[in-house]
Design a protein around this nucleic acid. Sequence first.
DNA 1: GCCCCGAAAGTTACCGGTAACGTGACCATC
DNA 2: GATGGTCACGTTACCGGTAACTTTCGGGGC
Lengths: 315, 315
Amino acid sequence: MTVSRVLRGASGFSEATREKVLQEVERTGYLPNRLAAAFGPAGTSTLIGVCVPRLTSPLFGSVLEALNLTLARLGYQTMIGSHNQLPEEEEIWLRTLASWKPAAVVLASRVHTPGTVKLLRDMAVPVAEIWDLTTKPIDLAIGFSHYDNGQEMARCVTSAGRRKIGYVGALGSRNTSGRLRYHGFVAGLAETGLTLMAEEILQDQPGFYAGYYGTETMLARRGDLDAIYFHDDEMAIGGLAYLARIGLKAPQDIGVAGWGGMEAASILPRRLTTTAIPTTRLGKTAAEALVSRLRGDPVDEVTIIQTRLVPGSTI
Amino acid sequence: MTVSRVLRGASGFSEATREKVLQEVERTGYLPNRLAAAFGPAGTSTLIGVCVPRLTSPLFGSVLEALNLTLARLGYQTMIGSHNQLPEEEEIWLRTLASWKPAAVVLASRVHTPGTVKLLRDMAVPVAEIWDLTTKPIDLAIGFSHYDNGQEMARCVTSAGRRKIGYVGALGSRNTSGRLRYHGFVAGLAETGLTLMAEEILQDQPGFYAGYYGTETMLARRGDLDAIYFHDDEMAIGGLAYLARIGLKAPQDIGVAGWGGMEAASILPRRLTTTAIPTTRLGKTAAEALVSRLRGDPVDEVTIIQTRLVPGSTI
DNA sequence: GCCCCGAAAGTTACCGGTAACGTGACCATC
DNA sequence: GATGGTCACGTTACCGGTAACTTTCGGGGC
């Protein structure tokens, strides 16, 4: 019991005892069993569940990396899942997670099944929804508005004089944050009295290929566009590759805008017009907010992470 | 007890009882507490620790995704860590993991501290070392030979008639698998009596920037190269961007080879010469091998995942 | 010297699933 | 009908850390 107190930094022991305990811990190589600790009294678990759409995206990877690192430093461990943009898979994951009695949950999605919401309430633990900002967070929300990102980019595109504008998206109806950017973009165009002249929303995962073929397909239907907004930078770069192949130059012949601020966007022959997302800051902020809540400190329910439109030179 | 037996699919209950149990489980929404299960008798944990160099790499992301998915389907949960190519961080992570008494461990690295090895032995659980093949696996090894990858690429480069060859690497001395490719590459060149004429090994994380500036630096010292082998595809693409900027064309003016088979490599104006890694297969195979071992089924200690040299057209 | 108080340290019970073992019912066999 | 065996199901103890409680000890005030 005294060992437990010393190692947890609780009170109720003398300095001399503390020394002795630490020495003995060192000598025997004693490792406390976190499983037993988490299993015991409620509120002693240091396990946090995190669910993201996919692990293969550098953007989410970077958020995860920051979350994981920050939580580890604060004494928490993460259990990770991916839902592939399917709310049902998120629920299945959450059900498994719930059986591990985590101290908190991080969800990188905006859309949840009713089952997910009920389960979260039953679990009665802090929940951080990251990435998208929701109007009504279940508990905490840390992110930014994809809608605003789209709208801002529309203003950038129209103020550059572009008028015949297309959109290339991905993930079909499963997409959520991408669709928000799309709607924001459309709304932004409407401010100048414009509408989208073409759109191509693929079922595929976003990626270079998808951008390449999406652009090809859209231009086959509608060849006179003077700008394209892409789901993300990877697709924009794929699109640029297709444009280069058919001899169109950005920005002279056609404008191109992406989203996400991936590193490659800045070493292209012409720096890509995009929106940069501070993923590391997002992950770190989310981790810190969650731990504050777990410790009972006051926390803002909604934390906005500022994104930045990178003008680049492809619009 | 009977409920436990039914839910675990153990024996010792009648069909009628099974039905009743399942009905009641459904009705009450009973969720077994995996924490308690894992905490109890040894060998009942379904927790598996996985440590990769970083979460931001699409290559590792893809391995993780496959691992995670396959393990989840087989009834296991993963606890993830990243060590940033530092064996000491791996040990720190493993120490934390050990306190969760996992059923098995997956390590995506070849180099371990003595502390790590001792800890793994003390934990006495199956260990899968993935990514690199080691000559003496601690337990299981699933991967491929980075050395062979490098050697094979050297043969490809020399057989294309290249003679003045440079190398651009990353991660400085922390690199392990990259260095193996480097050594294999040098050995491959030696077969034709060649040596590397220049090399530039950055301290940075591999990435587009690093490839861009690494190429710039190396060419400033040695401008007459006719081919460059890069740490990976991202760096190769960064290098290509720099070459394009100074007016050099691949493969006419200079040959370029990467590694990793990233998607973007295939939509470049000229398909990048690279080595494709079946990351999903690697992750899935590792997960299955580990679970076989956990179940006591016979498993190959070493599983080789076949990589594929993609000739492309930049050499 | 006595009492009281607070700090330090010890004791007990609990979390929930499962291995090991115990019990009872039923059936076949001699 | 006594015996032995098997199957279904119940009972007990245990894993290890911690909350809550009890005990012990030392010191200060009267």
